Amino acid sequence: MINIEGLRVEYGSKVAIENLNLEIKDGEIFGLIGHNGAGKSTTIKSLVSIIKPTAGKIFVDGLNLEENRLQIKNIIGYVSDSPDMFLKIPARSFLELIADIYGIDDDKRDERIEYLSEIFSLKNSLMGTIEEFSHGMRQKIFVIAALLSNPKIWILDEPMTGLDPQSSYNLKEMMKEHSKAGNTVLFSTHVLEVAEQICDRIGILSKGKLLFVGTMDELRATYPGENLENIYLDMVNTEHHLEIGEA
């Protein structure tokens, strides 16, 4: 379980996240929904210790993240929103490096690489350097790296971006299976249709503020008869108009 309490993130004079309180349960797929700049990636980067929040606390399975970073990192698989790292090395070498970091033995490593590269149709491309890959192929490599240790918690920032339809479908099915086993999946997206397909609950962010948390059915109940796109746009635009009025 992930608990976020009073999270605030500032970049200079800009407030990227403002007083975010959120609980993400074991055994669920939770989607962070929002347009570019809404605060999705900032929230995720706070969870995986890439950035240090200005204020607030994060707990994972009851452990304070600030005091237990390494222990918590060992149970998290993270996919960045920008698959542009380690470009100069072969994909296979990158995956082996990740396996070493997580302490995976060679036999298990090879088994997992074989299994995941088959799922994402990369089995015959692993000796190529990552910089030679298309954006979609790079995304697949970083998804494989995140899932290599079979971590309890998956934190995926726009994971479907660049994936071909079959790989996207396979990843969504894996997310469902992972949550059914009692694990946690948190992912961000700006595509409501994806969230509708697989999320148990969603949180809608706009300009660093959480506007809604709940199920898709609960979201629809707030605007009877409206489609999801109109509901989302109405929520975000209402927030924008309120800010203008307050100014």
Rank of each mutant, 00 (worst) to 15 (best):
K180C: 05
G62N: 11
I4T: 12
D105Y: 09
G37W: 05
L116T: 06
E158W: 00
V236H: 06
N183M: 06
G27T: 10
N170H: 02
K52D: 07
M137D: 08
D234P: 05
L32A: 12
M1A: 10
K152I: 05
E173Q: 15
V60I: 15
L205P: 06
A38L: 13
G182W: 11
N3T: 03
N183D: 09
G103Y: 09
V79H: 03
N124Y: 03
S117I: 03
M235R: 09
D157F: 01
L242H: 13
L65H: 02
T215C: 11
G136T: 01
M85R: 14
N68T: 05
S41T: 14
I144D: 08
Y78H: 04
N227I: 02
K25Q: 13
I204K: 04
S179N: 02
L95T: 13
E193A: 09
V48R: 10
Y11V: 13
G56F: 12
I50D: 08
S49D: 15
V185S: 08
P53R: 15
F212A: 05
N64I: 09
Y102L: 05
I155R: 00
N237M: 13
E173N: 14
A91L: 11
S49E: 13
N36G: 14
T222S: 14
I244N: 11
L228E: 05
K57A: 15
E5R: 15
Q71K: 08
T189C: 11
V236W: 07
A221P: 12
D107W: 09
N36R: 13
A38D: 09
I98T: 08
K180I: 10
L116E: 10
G208M: 09
G162M: 01
H35R: 01
V191M: 04
L205K: 09
L156G: 00
K45Q: 09
T42F: 15
E173R: 15
E132L: 00
R92N: 12
H178D: 02
P165L: 02
I2R: 11
A145E: 03
E218N: 02
L7C: 03
G27V: 10
M216V: 03
L97A: 14
L47Y: 07
D105M: 06
T43H: 04
D61V: 04
D106H: 09
A221D: 14
V60M: 10
L186R: 00
T184S: 02
L65T: 00
I198S: 01
G214M: 13
G37N: 14
L242Y: 08
K25P: 02
D26A: 13
P83W: 00
K209C: 11
D107Q: 12
D200S: 05
K180N: 13
G31D: 10
L122E: 05
G77Y: 01
E10G: 03
I202T: 02
L147N: 02
T222Y: 06
I104R: 11
D105G: 04
R69K: 14
V79Q: 07
Q197L: 01
S41N: 03
Q71C: 03
V48A: 10
L233H: 06
Q139S: 02
E131H: 15
G103W: 11
G34C: 06
